[in-house]
């Protein structure tokens, strides 16, 4: 497979970047998108050029490290997959592929295709936890009976890997889907009730402070999310927030 790549190259956070053209040959349909970039980087290194920097880690769709806006969509044109799970068979011979970093003011570019997503960490740190005494008398989580539907929905929310595709897809660069998944995974469980009020308020406050946009319910985040996190979570977070605010 022969490809024309247009890749965003940016020296560092302070420099302005641009799309650079690369022609690449010998790509197999069974390769993952990241393996295709590995091939490119090998060529660049052999030519003595600077390789393209991109984020990756587990390469099996569970760590949330890989990103990339591929032809205008986060994680590319396939659904329910991360970039590392995207196969090159989704593209055709001779295709032009535009590869950009996830764009959001709250996700500043560090270099090339790598963005700083620590704003997500700060949202999580602001309230995405429960306080449990682990001094030896820890109660087994399974000792508390939980409705199967609630447990399933909490688990669904907890499958969010925090990759940032929701922000990248949203025309407003809103982080509502991520934040709502992190709120929901506790809001649905009895263990999450004690800190429920402060949790949603703190996490929404932090989300706003980071400079993410507002949700306009376009649903793009849900479609592009590699884990299929539902918009139901955003509605739940809105309810949680309104209920927390009315409590003061």
């Amino acid at each position: 497979m022969k490809l024309n790549l247009k890749i965003w190259r940016q020296k560092d956070a302070k420099s302005s970047g641009e799309l650079i053209d690369y022609a690449l040959n010998g790509i197999e349909g069974d390769m993952s998108f990241l393996e295709m970039l590995d091939v490119l980087n090998e060529e660049l290194i052999n030519k003595g050029e600077e390789p393209v920097e991109f984020d990756h880690d587990c390469r099996e769709g569970i760590c949330g490290t890989c990103s990339l806006q591929i032809n205008g969509e986060p994680h590319g044109p396939d659904r329910l997959v991360t970039t590392c799970q995207l196969h090159m068979r989704k593209f055709n011979d001779g295709d032009t592929i535009v590869i950009e970093p996830f764009r959001a003011t709250a996700f500043p570019v560090i270099k090339d295709l790598i963005v700083d997503r620590s704003s997500f960490d700060r949202i999580q740190q602001s309230g995405g936890y429960i306080s449990v005494n682990t001094s030896g008398n820890t109660v087994d989580a399974n000792a508390i009976p939980i409705d199967k539907h609630d447990a399933d929905k909490a688990m669904d929310a907890a499958t969010c890997i925090g990759c940032g595709a929701c922000v990248a897809a949203c025309k407003n660069a809103s982080a509502m889907l991520f934040t709502s998944a992190k709120v929901s995974q506790f809001a649905l469980l009895p263990q999450g009730q004690i800190e429920a009020t402060e949790r949603v308020q703190s996490m929404v406050r932090q989300m706003d402070l980071e400079g993410f946009g507002n949700c306009t319910n376009t649903g793009a985040c849900e479609i592009e999310c590699p884990k299929g996190i539902s918009l139901e979570n955003i509605a739940r977070m809105n309810r949680e927030y309104l209920s927390a605010t009315s409590k003061g």
Binding site: N71, N172, A173, G211
Partner: peptide, 13 residues
């Protein structure tokens, strides 16, 4: 919302 993505995508589908 405009401010939340100060640098726009070159290609946005």
């Amino acid at each position: 919302n405009n401010k939340a993505r100060a640098i726009k995508y070159k290609k946005y589908n």
